[in-house]
Amino acid sequence: MLKLNNVTAGYGSTTILHGISLEVNEGEIVTIVGGNGAGKSTTLRTISSLIKIADGSIEFEGEDITKIPAHKIVERGITMVPEARQLFPEMTVLENLQMGSFTKVARPHYKEKLDEVLTLFPRVAERLSQGAQSLSGGEQQMVAIARGMMACPRLMLFDEPSLGLAPIVVSQVFDVVKKIAASGTTVLIVEQNVFQTLQIADRGYVIENGEIGMSGPAQELMGNDHIRKAYLGI
């Protein structure tokens, strides 16, 4: 479904990704794990075209999307739930969700998507008219995910959804990701929380210093000595 071929990218003159290649197949949960600054978030940001790609190419559903601008990527069916929620703080929760289905593709499905999302997040339904800013961190994360779903994505990218959340909320977030995947949306997730991510993922890539160091089925990675030492601290 999604294919990165030798992608090189970075900010300004600093190159962060040095020839990343990876693949996500339809219906999978794929995770990218790695240390901070290794290039995990950069990979997602490059896919959603927030960062310009320096070299290499990205294919989505067989088409080349390397040079497509960010707002068009969303129309193609790739939505990213960004790191640290990034809600529109001075809009209500409902308005945030409306912005979620901004694209021409998503707009006709607004009603049904809204129903779907509100069933999945009853807490969000209770707070529709509240300002996004007034929600707690966990609630904001739920709204961010809900907002992402409003765009009718076929592939959802999650950038560190557990960052800065209390452990109890973290497991709720992972439950939601599992549910989204179960409903047929493909998921690519980037996480610090290696242990819990590998538990829900089908396959994983380990990224180190902007290069793919290792990849394989999640269970296998979890059993790998290097990973256990470096990322799980076992």
Binding site: S48, V74, T79, F88, M91, A106, A151
Partner: peptide, 24 residues
């Protein structure tokens, strides 16, 4: 209006607006 909301969204969070499919 949809455009008006897009303008407000962009003002509040530019990166997120891009992720909503708004041509910032």
């Amino acid at each position: 209006t949809q455009l008006g909301r897009a303008i407000r969204a962009t003002g509040q969070n530019r990166a997120a607006a891009q992720l909503m499919g708004i041509n910032v």
